[in-house]
Amino acid sequence: MTTATAALGKDLVGLEPLSAEQIRLILDTAEPFKEVSERSIKKVPALRGKTIVNLFFEASTRTRISFEFAEKRLSADTVNVAASGSSVSKGETLVDTARNLEAMRIDMVVMRHGSSGAARFLGERIASNVINAGDGKHEHPTQGLLDMLTLRDHFGRLEGLKVAICGDVLHSRVARSNIWGLTKLGAEVGVCGPMTLMPRDVRELGVTVLPRIEDAIQWADALNILRLQLERMQAGFLPSLREYNRVFGVSNDRLSKAPKDLLIMHPGPMNRGVEIDSDVADGPHSVILPQVTNGVAVRMAVLYLLAGGTPALAQSAGRAEDK
C-alpha cells in the first residue's frame, strides 16, 4: 500500500506529468473501488454534493458512460454536455464555455476534445478540477491507467513486463498515455504498426520499434491492440483495411506461434476482423472486458483523489483520526 503523500494536482491532464508514485497511488486507490462495484448497493457517499460536468466535444458512448457510472457510484451529481465541434466553427469559444461552467459553480469537469492540449488549456483557465477524457492525439490518461491496472492484476507487477502497442501509434492518445505510464513504472514498451502510422522519433520516448506483428508476438507479454480508424485510409496512410488485416491483424493463427500465452488487450470499440479477429477478442487470453470493469474503478479513484483534501490541510494529517 502506498502512503497517501503523492497528492495529485488540481487536474489530471495526462500521465506524462505524473511521477511513478502518483501513478501507483491511483492504481492502489482503484482497488477498493473495484469492490464497491461488486456490492448490491453500488454507491458510496464520498463525493456526495459534488457537481461534475461531462463535457464531450467528441462523441463517445463508452468513455462517457464509464465516467458517469464512476461519478454516480461516488454519489456525485452529474450533467452531460455534448458540445459541438471546435471553437472556430461553432460559436462559443472553449474559454467562454469554461467560464460559464465555472459561473455555475461546478466542481469538476471531465472533458473529451478533438484538439491536443485542450484539457490543459481548460485547466489553466478554470478553478474546477479538469480530467482529460481524451484530447486530440495527446493523451487519454484514464485509459492508460486502466490498461496498467489490468496488466498489474494479471501479472502481479508492471516492472520488466513487455507490452507491445499495436496499430496507429501516430494518431493515438491511448498509445501515448500507455507509453508514459508503463515506462514510468518500469515496464518495457514496444510499438508495432505500419511506418506511415508511426511517429518518426518514437524511439526517443524510450520504446522499441517492432516492424511486423510477428515480431511483436515473439517479443511481448501482452498486446494492446489499437483501433484502426477508417479515416486513415481516406487520408492515404494505408491502401486498404483488408491489407491491414492481412499484414498486421492479430489472429489465432499468428498467436499460435507465440512462445508464451499473450495477454490480449484493446481499448475498444473493436473493428472485428480488421485489427483483431473475433476469436482472439473473445478468446481465453483476452482481458478486454476486465479492462472495462477496471475503467470504472480507475475513474472513481481519479475523481476521489482529485475531489478533496487540499495540500494545505495535509499538515494536519499528522493527527490521529477523529474517532
Binding site: A4, E31, E35, G309
Partner: peptide
C-alpha cells in the same frame, strides 16, 4: 469494514486517506 468513503470530513482531511479492505 473500511469507513473512509463514508467519512463526513473528506473535504478537509488530506492528503487522501488510503482506503482499506471491506
Amino acid at each position: 469494514l473500511d469507513i473512509t468513503l463514508y467519512r463526513d470530513d473528506l473535504q478537509t482531511v488530506g492528503p487522501r486517506p488510503v482506503v482499506g479492505v471491506t
